[in-house]
């Protein structure tokens, strides 16, 4: 008798509570209704709703708002993958494949022995410190080669080779960390329309004679390139490439031929010709990391 009444009471209490709460919440939902952009609702529905924060926003809701406002890329959701990105692209009415990969480019080509007017620098071994001191090398625009960008790169994609920061385009993902830390702002992000891109490998804004005093390879601003290629112009004694109209490196073949200093270089994947040139040489094999602990191979003698 007591058990039956208790059970019935328990069921009755919970049932009654559910009805009351449902009514109150339903009323509140109707009364406190806020109009939201239907796009945000659709995007929120298309996202996995894991609230993992992998996209860099606090939750799926905030990411959905950012996407709807055009502030965020469509492909940031790692759990949703490419299917999710496609759905978002459909909702936003854009094509997902439109975005070009941006990669870091160092606008300096002078290796250690090509820089003139160098002095011995014994200070803090960072570019920021050396940049403050001045007089470390003749060129006040070029790479200092002390590796602030190397320390900033989370992907091990930039290294100092012969005193010059060199990007490894197999590893670079275009996170901009190196461009952000470079005190001389010589690293910029270039849209890679092809596997290899033509870039201007100098940042010196001085006139020709002054450049020749401090560097063996730097651009002297002679305008030979801008006269021979439509997509190039000279500003502050430096050539500028119009990457919006850039289609292939062939457009610049004549300009490169005329350049007296070889200031324009190709960066990115090596060409077939370059690969053929080193085909005969024996290159060291790539060493893969071996994730083993010291006890993995130890024989157990318990």
């Amino acid at each position: 008798m007591l058990t039956t009444v208790t059970m019935l009471l328990a069921a009755g209490v919970l049932g009654l509570l559910a009805v009351i709460v449902a009514y109150v919440l339903g009323w509140a939902n109707y009364t406190f209704h806020v109009k939201v952009d239907p796009k945000i609702v659709a995007i929120t529905d298309a996202l996995p709703g894991a609230n993992c924060g992998g996209c860099g926003y606090v939750g799926c809701g905030e990411y959905a708002e950012a996407v709807a406002a055009g502030r965020a890329e469509l492909n940031l959701c790692a759990p949703g993958g490419s299917g999710c990105a496609e759905k978002l692209a459909q909702i936003m009415g854009v094509e997902v494949g439109q975005s070009l990969p941006y990669r870091a480019v160092v606008h300096c080509a002078a290796r250690r022995d090509q820089r003139l007017g160098q002095t011995v620098y014994l200070g803090e071994p960072t570019c920021v410190a050396a940049n403050l001191v001045g007089g470390v090398q003749g060129c006040t625009y070029g790479c200092l080669g002390l590796g602030d960008c190397v320390a900033a790169c989370p992907y091990d994609a930039i290294h100092i080779v012969d005193g010059l920061s060199t990007v490894d385009y197999d590893k670079c993902v275009g996170c901009k960390n190196c461009a952000r830390v470079c005190p001389r702002n010589i690293i910029t992000m270039v849209p890679f329309k092809a596997e290899r891109m033509l870039v201007v490998a100098c940042s010196n804004k001085d006139f020709g004679p002054e450049v020749k005093e401090v560097c063996e390879v730097g651009c002297i601003g002679c305008k030979a390139c801008s006269k021979n290629a439509e997509l190039m112009s000279i500003e502050n004694n430096l050539p500028i490439i119009d990457y919006d109209a850039y289609e292939s490196e062939e457009q610049f073949a004549k300009a490169r031929e005329k350049c007296p200093r070889e200031s324009m270089i190709l960066v990115g994947k090596p060409s077939p010709k370059d690969l053929a040139a080193v085909a005969g040489e024996k290159l060291p094999d790539r060493v893969e990391a071996d994730f083993k602990t010291t006890v993995d191979d130890t024989e157990w003698r318990g």
Binding site: L17, V21, L25, F32, H33
Partner: peptide
Amino acid sequence: FVIAASVQFVEMYVRK
């Protein structure tokens, strides 16, 4: 149950 319901209520109220 009560906590979840009152949070829902507060959320709607604050949002409005």
